[in-house]
Design a binder for these strands. Structure first.
Lengths: 142, 142
DNA sequence: AAAATATATTTGTATATACAAATGAAAACT
DNA sequence: AGTTTTCATTTGTATATACAAATATATTTT
């Protein structure tokens, strides 16, 4: 059934969640190549981009709670993709060599996802939607 | 941090999920009055609207998997808000008296949510966004 | 009519996520 | 210097969700 055929298609909660689940499904597919969930992958890319990035800043960037980030880091650490270094009360996150070597693969996954999206949406369409969603998300900021 | 300040603000996966989480948070708040999560509440309202509605159709309407709907029904059943009646291989869902009496409260919750949204978004804005999201969600249909 | 297939639902298991409480470390205040 | 407060992170617990396998019923095929 299409989202627009649902009784609740005009409800913001419903529509936003339905869309997020569908988009996530595609993203999961794209990141299978590296055996990571999208959120793990994005976290890892942030760490690769800025080695030593602080855990709290990761939470900001990913718009997730610190506890969720902590759990994501646990998993990435057991996979030997990052290490957590304590510095006073804060935790700095460093990508491992293994993670660095994975960079080209990660790039491929991003491209894969882009391609999947572009098969469905025009560049213009997706840009518009993203802009629209970001604006609203910003307004919902606490 | 605002969504638009994140490094991944231009990524569909990221933006859609960030938005969905924020919207859900508001919705959760609105439905606390009846001690239901938004998805339980929407399911219940569908059952009230169409007593005897089939489980599979609930999954369609809510854009959730049958297994998720089954779990939602379990909870609503222990709360004595619905009963599941088997008819052949299908399950029909009936609201209980208790659920029927809850109708006015449910209405209040919807209004509460609307009000919360309208404090942040104009009618026009939200309409536009919802339309936009539904369109894309439809295209992502398998 | 019996067997095979299709359909609807549930159950087992795993996921990411959040909140609240606990921990640990630094900073601020006597 | 010792105590309190603040801040960053982790841990305990609970959530909704999905996939795959199991179950149960109906339909089709032979």
């Amino acid at each position: 059934m299409k989202t627009s055929d649902s009784k609740y298609c005009s409800c913001l909660y419903f529509t936003a969640n339905a869309l997020a689940r569908k988009v996530e499904k595609i993203a999961i597919e794209s990141w299978k190549k590296v055996d990571l969930s999208p959120s793990h992958a994005y976290l890892l890319m942030l760490a690769l981009d800025e080695p030593g990035i602080q855990a709290g800043r990761l939470a900001d960037q990913l718009q997730l709670t610190p506890s969720t980030v902590s759990r994501l880091l646990q998993k990435l650490e057991t996979k030997k993709l990052v290490i957590r270094g304590a510095e006073g009360k804060q935790i700095n996150v460093y990508p491992t060599q293994k993670a660095k070597e994975m960079k080209p693969l990660l790039k491929e996954c991003i491209d894969d996802a882009s391609e999947r999206y572009s098969k469905i949406l025009s560049k213009e369409e997706s840009k518009q939607l993203i802009k629209n969603m970001s604006q609203v998300a910003d307004k919902l900021e606490d």
